[in-house]
Amino acid sequence: MTATSEGPAPEAPLVEHHVLEYPGGYTRSLGPALSAFFTGLRDGRLVGARTADGRVVVPPAEHDPRTAAPLGEWVEVGPAGTVTAWTWVANPKPGKHHLSGPFGFALVRPDGADTALVGVVDAGVPEVMSVGMRVAPRWARVRTGTIHDLEAWVPLADGAAPAPAPPNEAPEVGEEPVTRIVCPIRLEYEINAGIAPSRYLRGLAQRRIIGQRARDSDHVYVPPRGSDPMTGAPTEIEVEVGQTGTVTTFCITNIAGLSELAPPIPYVTAQVLLDGAATPWFGLVTGCDPTEVRMGMRVRAVWSEQAAPDARTLVGFEPTGEPDAPYEHWKDYA
């Protein structure tokens, strides 16, 4: 049983910002239990479900957590409740946490319920929070059937009665049940290219195409990922490959809008076997009419104006005008 570690790299890897977000947010259809719950929130009520053994679970589960049986009897609970667990968020995240100031997260068991739901508590300071504290909903004035219709739980003085939900000020709120919610999920990353791809990308900035191979192999991989995929051996030897290659296969795309980077339709994407490389490069073929592209066509690199260490610096390939490469030379690669 041994440990593995290696020395530091001489060069920092490239890092680029990345946003993972489905445009417009995920659309979540609700089904009967959650429809009852979100419709209740819109109407200023907390709704739970009664299980076969008489317990009340909130949010209303579709299926009994103990028996997996379907549930179908909805009951109003609360609105006041008791905190059964809590923590504190000192620095809310704009665009995610909907309260702008520090707040508590809590499990709140509404009166009449046997389970607790996750909620936010607008308590000002954490010293106010405790397990056992009494809280009541502060309802949003404009309620549209989202989790934020219950804007926050707020501390409730002993013996005080919770305030009823104010009239809903949302325009055009009907009696129809809420059947769908939209959940925006935006995650931000600083993606690290890794050691081998960083070398390749820095080569592109110099208009060079740099692949790598493992010590015991003459297979040059472009772009390199760090290993010879056939053996798993690290690719420690750098090899600059040619800027010309052969189209091994391709397709003409006639559908628009597949990528922000896609040119106007019709356009050609191809596998291009670079001279000296073991695997095809995949991307655009430009500089000729799409109908002129052929398997075996000889092509050369097209560079963007930018000299950046970025995959998009190598825009694609265009015909060289040389005679086509014979099928036998590249058929193993298509």
């Binding site: 570690s5 290219a193 890794g194 050691i195």
Partner: peptide, 13 residues
Amino acid sequence: RRNEVELVIPVVQ
């Protein structure tokens, strides 16, 4: 500095 592949290579080897 390693990407995922480069993280896996040494432990697998």
